[in-house]
Design a protein around this nucleic acid. Structure first.
Lengths: 185, 185
DNA sequence: TGACCTACCTAATGATCTTAGGTACAGTCC
DNA sequence: GGACTGTACCTAAGATCATTAGGTAGGTCA
């Protein structure tokens, strides 16, 4: 029996691949083990169970999302930066539906979870500085932006918008509404 | 063995009770049967399986939510109506977390699912008429409002806002931003 | 009272997660 | 180069779950 040479990252990466192609509910230890050419109990060497795997998947997703947002906002400010992170956010959720769903259910208790979630918030805070918004104001604004982005991509993902027509136009208007709100804040 | 006298509604009601107190993931046929004083296979008389149960739970939640919104908006218009449905939406999600989560995962293919989801949209459309917004404009506006509400309550529910401080204030500002956006639309 | 309908049952299967305990491959030390 | 140790992976076994097949009995209507 040859060793596969797994490690926690390789396991979580494989889980993310399953989640993003077949949905988060398809991520079972049985399926994951089969994909990796290993028996289910062997996964416990790298991950302490299904709950832990989901938590790691969420943290991984949050890190990835934060990276994408950061990249998109680099060198931009104000409305341009807001649009950039908006589209980056939406793209990430569209292209990594399973990871995005996992990210959403982060238990949030562990340090890793917290730092991953904070990274996303930090990017939004940076964009808000471009609007001259800081301190307590920025906390409220960040929450509103995250709510709008998260709500939109979630409803889009589960088909919550009965007619999928002109979703780009709706998202553009959502960004305009946010921009206007930030300006008058 | 006395008959319990169940019917689909009683089964779904019991499932909603479990979902709202112990979380949607606690809704298993085993647990539900135990609560109802029945063996798991007996539930198949009323419900065609776990997937069907979840779908019914979601449809039930959507109907309940639509009723709450309708009730809150009655006799109000404009900003007042927007605030009313906003707080009603948030209250429903807070008081019925399991039902709200189920509502969110509606497969949406069946007629019952569709009509339940449409009821929520209809209330929002009615509020928009108070702003003088109709037709295609109203579709975009409805989506933005639902996105904002849904995103906020979801993040609030999963503890997505690191500091739970002043969440009421954030929600009030979110409503103000939406109101402003609707006025200039 | 007898016949039917069906709500509920027991029995059994298969998928899943999880733990306990064994085996053999890799690198390290002599 | 050969024994020692750590650990990646294994088989075996259990518990919990959803689901199907087929039987039983309680309520209802003629």
């Amino acid at each position: 029996m040859p060793r596969v040479g797994l490690d926690p990252d390789a396991v979580v990466d494989a889980a993310a691949r399953i989640a993003d192609t077949d949905g988060l509910e398809a991520v079972t230890l049985a399926r994951l083990a089969a994909d990796l050419g290993v028996r289910p109990p062997s996964l416990y060497v790298h991950v302490s169970g299904l709950a832990d795997l989901h938590a790691r998947l969420g943290a991984r997703g949050a890190r990835e999302l934060a990276d994408e947002l950061q990249l998109s906002a680099a060198g931009r400010a104000g409305r341009e930066a807001l649009d950039a992170i908006g589209y980056a956010y939406r793209d990430y959720a569209t292209e990594h539906p399973g990871s995005y769903e996992a990210l959403q259910r982060l238990p949030g208790s562990s340090d890793a979870d917290l730092s991953a979630a904070t990274a996303v918030v930090d990017v939004v805070l940076a964009v808000l500085r471009g609007y001259g918004i800081e301190g307590g104001e920025a906390i409220h604004a960040t929450r509103i932006i995250r709510s709008a982005f998260h709500g939109f991509v979630t409803l889009e993902r589960v088909g919550g918008f009965a007619i999928p027509l002109e979703l780009d136009e709706t998202f553009a208007r959502l960004l305009a509404t946010l921009d206007q709100g930030l300006r008058t804040a």
